[in-house]
Design a protein around this nucleic acid. Structure first.
Lengths: 274, 274
DNA sequence: CAAAATACGTAACATAACATACAGCGCTCC
DNA sequence: GGAGCGCTGTATGTTATGTTACGTATTTTG
């Protein structure tokens, strides 16, 4: 059963030629606004010709373009009148994606509920004060999060390093680390032995550790100065890192704000290097 | 200070002649839909003549009717993109982290609202059918997402490769790619020239491209078989990849489910390798 | 009460929007 | 490798939309 035009499109998008598919994707990308504009504007936005738009509309079963627009408007009217339906596809209850998304949203809310502003502010302050270097590392599945955070932090301040490659490589870099430095570690179940060893050694050298982990806390928490515990449970065989990802982004944002003055200059300098 | 056209109208409705006032009331009554229709329909709905509508629009300060409609559309676009989510976490008002988190939650909801089950199922099916190889690559900030997805996919199926290192390196790997293969690309603003070139070449070799991008669509959309447009706007200097991250996780989940039978054996084999 | 000014609608016009015919191109399937 | 089919864009035609001019009705003011 198809109720909205958006569904209709994604139902038939598979059976469309390339040009019409581009039209469909452009429309879905910011639905339904593109469809309310003129054919010429629509075609320009999609990068195809006007007839392709009209053929696309015809394929959806509309007699002509105005009829298509009227349908979009009717849909919009219904949506605007019942604000409750704006939250999510109301009919997507019981759908396949819904449980995953719902679980993730719950995880986010729960994670941030246990996270005070002060905690985040403290950590951000620690990351922003540039007395020493910042190292980041993660486990098998969480290392991409470390990379992501490193990529952003490296833009607004110097001396940010992601530890990659084999264990022996980053173990050797311990020699560069001291009590002025910060080590950000991502570690969720199953906790990695190698990371625990690394954290312990770094801790003994006086490095301040900021740990991103799950709600059961990696053993590294024992050595960490700051611990962020994210919810990871989703209806799936593996754990979700989405909550930790969002916390990481939030921290990046906070650090950016704190370094705004210094950071702005740095970003300008970076731009001029291209 | 007047921000919306609705305010503008109620501000000046007192100084309007009878006919224009009827036009104003009709528009406000089901705002902004009537204003998106044609002058003739608007005038019929208000029970006045077309020129009255045009005079009404002119009195609001617009040069002509299309300009007025564009303004309404822009307003609508802004509204649709950031659904007022204040209602959700009522107790977190005034908190420092709140704006970031709220924006992220909005982005998630909006992203999935434009994403149907069928789309996701199609993409998951394509990723799960193992006719060829799967390659993943991302841009400056999104490459970690590609790595994350690669790490998970590689567990449940063979022939999953993340393309890392310098451009010349992955460019050379094009030689291994053919029409049975899938290329997953992450690219958000600012879109990377090198990725576009790479995508184009891969496309010409017949590789099926799955693109993760933002709502403004990377130019790669032109070559992509499937496009996932995530919302990236957050109150910050940079863009958020959280929505794309969650979509990636959702896809991983869907692929896992589809490969459950084959995957379970593979996971057992992996375990025994440790 | 009269006269002027303002507002409103009818009708004709110009413009730009949608629709269609056609030709070139690429693709697939023999 | 060749023939056929299907998709796409250019160019042209046609519709209908927005716009303007003008005459009539209505209200306001002296």
């Amino acid at each position: 059963m198809i109720s909205s035009i958006a569904e209709l499109i994604s139902d038939r998008i598979g059976a469309m030629p390339a040009g019409e598919r581009r039209a469909a994707q452009t429309l879905i990308a910011n639905y339904p606004l593109t469809g309310l504009k003129t054919v010429a504007e629509f075609s320009a936005a999609a990068g195809v010709s006007s007839p392709t738009i009209l053929r696309f509309v015809a394929r959806l079963g509309f007699q002509n373009y105005p009829e298509f627009q009227s349908a979009l408007q009717d849909e919009l009217a219904a949506q605007l009148q019942s604000p409750a339906s704006r939250t999510l596809n109301p009919d997507s209850a019981g759908s396949a994606v819904s449980p995953m998304l719902e679980a993730t949203l719950d995880n986010l809310r729960e994670t941030f509920r246990h996270l005070t502003d002060k905690q985040l502010a403290d950590i951000a302050a620690r990351l922003a004060e540039r007395r020493g270097k910042t190292f980041l590392i993660g486990g098998r599945f969480t290392d991409p999060l470390a990379r992501y955070m490193a990529a952003h932090l490296a833009i607004i301040q110097p001396d940010v390093y992601h530890l990659s490659g084999q264990e022996s490589i980053w173990r050797d870099r311990l020699i560069d680390m001291g009590k002025r430095d910060v080590l950000v570690i991502f570690d969720i179940r199953r906790y990695q032995e190698s990371l625990v060893r690394f954290a312990e050694k770094a801790h003994h050298r006086g490095v301040q550790i900021i740990l991103f982990t799950d709600q059961w806390l990696s053993p590294i928490a024992r050595f960490a100065r700051h611990v962020i515990a994210g919810r990871t449970a989703v209806p799936s065989a593996w754990d979700s890192s989405a909550a930790l990802f969002v916390v990481a982004e939030t921290l990046i944002g906070a650090v950016t704000r704190q370094l705004e003055a210094a950071g702005a200059k740095r970003i300008r300098d970076l731009e001029s290097l291209r």
